[in-house]
Design a protein around this nucleic acid. Structure first.
Lengths: 126, 126
DNA sequence: ACATTTCGTTTACGCGCGTAATCGTTGGCT
DNA sequence: AGCCAACGATTACGCGCGTAAACGAAATGT
């Protein structure tokens, strides 16, 4: 079904999130953050780092005796793939129907509407 | 990680899609559609129908010798959960940043922009 | 009645994921 | 030189999913 070669899993994306926030980082630091945020044990995070390495999603640069990890794929690209995937699956690949859905479900906060309006105006200007 | 009790998987959602499009339907019809659309074997679809039954996502009403299947959860609810999940994971739970992301990536077709504009106008009117 | 078809149910199986524990290696300390 | 600590790598294991095959019961044709 999902024939995509090397997808980033949910747990893995938490690791990516940490590295996107600030990198490069030693494993120790990633572990510390995810222990706090997700309650994960050291081994868990090490495994995830390795799987991401094998998938080519991050790189590890030797820094003395340890490695420093950094993302190889951009957060924007990731966000893009995920978002487009959802749109494709649920909204015929287009954005407007999603917004329409949220609107119908009354899930549009006034500040969201305001921000959308600003966005559209900016698009007009160019 | 995903502690949600009874999540609808990707393959299962294809079955739901068929039933949402038109129900109730006999297994045979669901099988026929998914054989064509997804290339799935009969057994595969049967399994998915059963898993959905166990999850309480669909119901089966006896119709003579066979069963007719119909969704128990609404498509809108499903779409809602999925969309909100994505927004929560990637966009701090809000819609505007997603639209902004698409805009930045130049993935907004002119007709999307037009449709968004119409939507916002309609929101104004009430 | 019996064989055959038709459905639904049960069982199977490999894979990735979440979650670790354990192993191996290498640099530092005594 | 030998031992310990730190770190990455390897192995483990149960679970759900994708994908079916096999099984069983009920209806139908002959």
């Amino acid at each position: 079904m999902d024939t995509n070669p090397h997808r980033i899993s949910a747990a893995e994306s938490e690791v990516m999130k940490v590295l996107w926030a600030d990198s490069p980082k030693a494993a120790e630091d990633v572990v510390a953050i995810l222990a706090k945020d997700q309650g994960w044990a050291e081994g868990t995070v090490k495994t995830l780092l390795n799987r991401l390495l094998n998938k080519g999603a991050i790189a590890a640069d030797k820094d003395g005796r340890r490695f420093l990890y950094r993302p190889l794929i951009g957060r924007d690209d990731y966000v893009d793939t995920e978002s487009q995937g959802l749109l494709d699956r649920l909204f015929d690949g287009r954005l407007a129907p999603l917004v329409s859905h949220f609107s119908k479900r009354e899930k549009l906060a006034p500040e969201d509407v305001a921000e959308l309006r600003r966005l559209l105006e900016k698009l007009d200007d160019q």
